[in-house]
């Protein structure tokens, strides 16, 4: 698990696939890494699998297979606390269900949704009404 913390997400390289909650488990017997896709059609899923494969191979762990596990379904609740801080620092408002959406630039909660979808399936477009910066928000999912 510690090793895979060095594998960045291809779309949000500030975060590792572990911090995003994509890597669910590492089993030794049989040697398997369990991953779960964020969205059914997320095109990054294949890139993530390839990156994990490369990381394992680079460390002599060719015997590990990668298994995609659909259930339980991935949820933004699995993004780690550190991952959330990194998202904010990267300019993406992390998913906090029930809380007002704060601008990752100035911290104001005087914000509005521009569009339910953003640059990737996992994000929505928002705008800060204080500093007027547009920003991505990780959708609560």
């Amino acid at each position: 698990m510690g090793l895979l913390s060095s594998v960045p997400d291809p779309e949000i390289p500030a975060l590792s696939v572990v911090e995003l909650g994509i890597v669910r488990a590492v089993h030794l017997d049989p040697p398997e890494v369990h991953i779960t896709p964020t969205y059914s059609g997320c095109p990054a899923t294949l890139a993530i699998e390839a990156a994990i494969r490369r990381c394992l191979d680079d460390h002599g762990l060719e015997s590990f297979s990668i298994r995609t596990v659909l259930s339980p379904a991935w949820t933004t609740d699995w993004i780690t606390t550190e991952g959330r801080q990194k998202l904010r620092a990267y300019g993406i408002a992390p998913p906090d269900p029930g809380k007002p959406v704060a601008c990752p630039q100035c911290g104001s909660t005087h914000t509005e949704e521009v569009s339910r979808f953003g640059s990737t399936p996992c994000k929505a477009q928002w705008r800060c009404l204080e500093c007027l910066e547009p920003f991505d928000r990780f959708k609560c999912h």
């Binding site: 969205y39 059914s40 059609g41 997320c42 569009s115 339910r116 979808f117 399936p121 477009q125």
Partner: peptide, 18 residues
């Protein structure tokens, strides 16, 4: 914004179909 929305809905659906 709508372009992104419709394309992302399409992407989800094609992922489900796969």
């Amino acid at each position: 914004e709508l372009d992104l929305s419709l394309a992302n809905v399409a992407l989800d659906l094609i992922g489900q179909a796969t």
